[in-house]
Design a protein around this nucleic acid. Structure first.
Lengths: 128, 128
DNA sequence: CCTTGACTTTGAGTGCGCTCCAAGATGTAC
DNA sequence: GTACATCTTGGAGCGCACTCAAAGTCAAGG
């Protein structure tokens, strides 16, 4: 998370105006860090900024908004579960395509041998 | 995938100029569909357009580019695996936070009871 | 004293991936 | 015949999430 991003998040209300040192520089408390870490985690899993803003707003209103906030988290958790499924199926597809490419490569090596096995041994031997 | 997106993909070279009906309208073959489906799958897992362009370019050059293409897929597969991990840890974090919210809500209900259990029964009974 | 460098601000700029607009051609329904 | 929908094109516009530029302040080091 860059300094630019931190300032941006403060600007759009994702974090409350943060404490300053005597020279005016920002000083992040442990609580700030924890909150930023949570924000980072949500962003990394594709929660849009506007939803994070909504959540931050509710959070500032205290416990009374618990239900609403929980709803947001549950929705996002469901989105995450869906993402995981999509990623897993893509992962499987890639495994399949990659083994296919390996077959193609083997065929090419058989049809157009550039280095025989002894050539390879030779190369290795001279390299050492 | 919208018509807009299909045209966009053709424009930026992700798909070869596709066949046309006599009236000039695009007609997608089964092969086109399969390729588009693959593209969709890669986009859905955050492969950037430029990398898909690179892959498409290699693909048009035939089997000789197999190794390079496989590298792209392997890299993307690794990226997917990393994404899955990140999503899983976020999922776990959310589970934790959600149960926390449920605790808060229970405390609120105990402190400020609006409906007693009999009230609830009453409501249900009159609704049926 | 003067440079260096890390911070401050406001506001503008960037890159990505679409997404839409305007104008025009064609096909379908009434 | 005449609406209306659906496609065509090139080019412009948009939303998101940063990311940077310019100008200024301040503290430490040489």
């Amino acid at each position: 998370m860059t300094a630019h991003t931190l300032r941006y998040y403060e600007r759009v209300g994702l974090i409350q105006p943060v404490g300053r040192a005597s020279n005016g520089h920002r000083r992040y408390s442990k609580a700030d860090e924890a909150w930023l870490n949570f924000l980072h985690c949500m962003r990394a899993t594709s929660m849009p900024i506007c939803e994070m803003q909504r959540y931050a707003e509710l959070r500032e209103q205290g416990d009374a908004t618990s239900l609403e906030r929980r709803k947001i988290l549950e929705d996002h958790q469901a989105a995450i579960a869906a993402q995981i499924e999509e990623l897993q199926s893509a992962h499987a597809l890639l495994t399949h395509k990659i083994t296919n490419y390996m077959k193609i490569e083997r065929r090419i090596r058989v049809d157009h041998p550039v280095l025989s096995e002894t050539d390879v041994d030779c190369t290795l031997a001279s390299a050492s």
